[in-house]
Design a protein around this nucleic acid. Structure first.
Length: 507
RNA sequence: CGGGGUGUAGCGCAGUCCGGUUAGCGCACUGGUUUUGGGAACCAGGUGUCGGAGGUUCGAAUCCUCUCACCCCGACCA
């Protein structure tokens, strides 16, 4: 038997997926736990990914006419109470501010004082506080549509947290729009879902399934919730973005009314939509391998790590000069319309260590450049989408001239791998036993990676949804838009069904 | 929030059941020598309030009580 190849991350994905994930976050220096329970510290490499996500999405939002604004972190309790379902959905996970002051307790410490007349809730989402502003801003049909987005942090007092996937505080954007008609609001909901899907696929290189959430999975207070669902490498689904059609529910609770052309008052139609730092979790779990993070070039904080390989100081100076020539040539090049970011790793770690450091951090391209390369006017390149040992030499000018193609190739390759993985682990299932087998691990004690996306018929009843959830811990991820209308029998109860839905275990 | 687990050097761990010199090991780190197209070798060295607070004891990493954090499973959720 072949000796097991040493990997940079231990355990591997197959050995222990949850632990592997944590190790990737750690060795890639993306984030760490803070002293504040459930809250993470996002480190520079991780935050740079978030900044890139922001940059791209922000531009995409603005292209549809959305403008940015900022609303308070604190929401008066009374605002929150206005929408009953909304309250019910979030009440259990709210941080509440009740005092405004600290005073000396006479024992060298501090005590809270200055109790507030009305407690403030630290926003878990901002529908209600933004609604209050919108009620003032919207008077006439001429004020509509109102398209607003905010980049913010939110707090949801989670009991069980995982870096990026679920933390007590997280960063996100929340779009909130107001429309004069139902159809227009619905179109906005769908438009933003399309933006998310496009972003996930083209930038994060994560294929997603667009669809509508079942009633049970709907946002509290929404009329309809839509999502994009991505498959992680443990074959579980991760909701990567949501878009909600809120009907007139929030307009009524926040009193967002406008006068139509006939001078009559009507309640407006609202939407909200968001993605969060969870996208970074999706990115990690969709692409990374047993050697660490794998970053799609279009979202990577940097594209190329250059590792000088020198025997002595004299060689090193010459090699650095040679590298300078290459980096200045790279400055002229563009990838995805943006500058190509190069990190020259001139630290005095060994070349092997440096090489592995950049592999673990997911750098798309590594260039190892020694004296021999310099004399041959070439570079020695490793790609993160290929095996660490699979490196090749090519002329430096040739490299510079084709760098955008190489990065594109990596981007496409990563996407294709994720797409293939999803295809291999998606099944159309009509037989109930087959469905149950699909989601049952062989090892019950320590379940191996199993399951996937099952496209099966569902009659639409909450009972069937609940039953499957109870039996298998599998839920309906969404009702895909792209599925053809097709008669069939519910996988659970056998009653007639009009459409297939995606079942999966999920995050 | 319920069940289970873990907490000992920067990281990974042993030691805990059965209390007993100065708390170890591997990697990392520092210095040196040798190596040098690749996750280097050897020698020398530094590093710990043993998660925290109480308690039992001549003596606690080890026993008891409380507490905090993290991980896994469940419930809940982006």
């Amino acid at each position: 038997m072949a000796k097991k190849q040493r990997t940079a991350i231990e355990p591997t994905r197959v050995e222990d997926y949850a632990e592997w994930y944590q190790q990737v976050v750690k060795v890639a220096e993306l984030a760490e736990n803070s002293d504040v329970r459930g809250c993470m510290v996002i480190k520079p490499w991780g935050y740079a990914i978030w900044e890139n996500i922001q940059k791209v999405l922000d531009k995409m939002f603005k292209e549809t006419g959305v403008k940015n604004a900022y609303f308070p972190l604190f929401i008066p309790k009374s605002y929150f109470e206005k929408e009953a379902e909304h309250v019910e959905g979030f009440a259990k996970e709210c941080a509440v501010v009740t005092h405004s002051r600290l005073e000396d307790d006479g024992k060298g410490g501090l005590k809270v004082a200055g109790e507030l007349a009305e407690p403030y809730i630290v926003r878990p989402t901002s529908e209600t506080i933004i609604g209050a502003s919108f009620a003032k801003w919207v008077n006439s049909y001429r004020d509509l549509p109102l398209l607003i987005n905010q980049w913010a942090n939110v707090v949801r007092w989670e009991l069980r947290t995982r870096l990026f996937l679920r933390t007590a505080e997280f960063l996100w954007q929340e779009g909130h729009t107001v429309h004069a008609s139902k159809a227009e609001a619905e179109a906005e909901t769908r438009l933003m879902l399309d933006v998310y899907a496009k972003f996930a696929q083209e930038y994060l290189a994560v294929p997603v399934v667009k669809g509508e959430k079942s009633e049970g999975e709907r946002f509290p207070g929404a009329v309809a919730t839509f999502s994009i669902e991505a498959m992680m490498q443990d074959k579980k689904a991760l909701q990567a973005g949501t878009s909600h059609f809120l009907g007139q529910n929030f307009a009524k609770s926040s009193d967002i009314k406008y006068q139509n052309k006939d001078g009559e008052y009507e309640f407006a139609w609202t939407t909200s939509w968001g993605v969060s730092t969870r996208l970074i979790g999706a990115l990690i779990m969709a692409h990374s391998d047993d050697n660490g993070l794998v970053l799609p070039p279009k979202i990577a904080p940097a594209h190329i790590a250059i590792i000088p390989i020198a025997k002595n100081d004299e060689d090193r100076l010459e090699i650095l000069e040679y590298i300078k020539k290459i980096t200045s040539a790279l400055k002229e090049k563009r990838f995805d319309g943006k500058e190509i970011i190069v990190e020259v790793d001139d630290t005095d770690a060994t070349s092997g260590e440096k090489n592995w450091k950049w592999i673990k951090r997911g750098m798309p391209i590594r260039l190892e450049i020694g004296k021999r390369d310099m004399e041959a006017n070439s570079i020695f390149m490793g790609r993160r989408d290929l095996d660490p040992k699979e490196k090749k030499g090519l002329g430096w000018e040739e490299f510079v001239n084709s760098v955008d193609e190489i990065l594109n190739d990596i981007q496409n390759n990563i996407y294709q791998k994720a797409l293939d993985f999803r295809s291999e682990n998606s099944a159309v299932i009509d037989d109930k036993d087959e469905f149950y087998n699909f989601f049952t691990p062989e090892n019950k004690e320590k379940p191996e990676i199993h399951g996937g996306f099952a496209y099966a018929h569902w009659c639409g009843s909450v009972d069937c949804e609940e039953k499957i959830k109870e039996d298998l811990k599998v839920t309906i991820r969404n009702i895909p838009f792209e599925a053809d209308a097709e008669e069939g029998k519910c996988i659970c109860c056998g009653k007639t069904s009009k459409q297939r839905v995606v079942f999966s275990k999920s995050y």
